[in-house]
Amino acid sequence: MKETILLLALTFFMIAIGLLLYRSIVGPTMPDRAIALDTIGVNIISAIAIVSIILSTTAFLEAILILGILAFIGTIAFSKYIERGVIVERKGDS
């Protein structure tokens, strides 16, 4: 029963990811995509957590943290790119 609920939850997350994917493909603007991807990342975090419960292993918990970090760095980089056109600035005191 618990397993079934977890699988159901996982399926929901997948659907959510699918929908977000639609948004990230369609856009229409770059920020839309960035947000959608960020959210996808967050959803994958949740999904991994659920899989960990199902497999009853703690081996994937690092992945959760890393994914969080990457989603963050990715979003920052993306927004910087949208905002300024570069990701790493050569120089600047802004």
């Binding site: 994917l21 493909i25 770059m30 995509r33 996808i40 999904a47 991994i48 994937f60």
Partner: peptide, 25 residues
Amino acid sequence: RITSVLLNGVLGYSVAFFFVIFRAP
């Protein structure tokens, strides 16, 4: 370009998720 790159990223992440499912932390 951006869409393509992002889609590729999505593929990569999905593969990563498969790695999770297939017990490869």
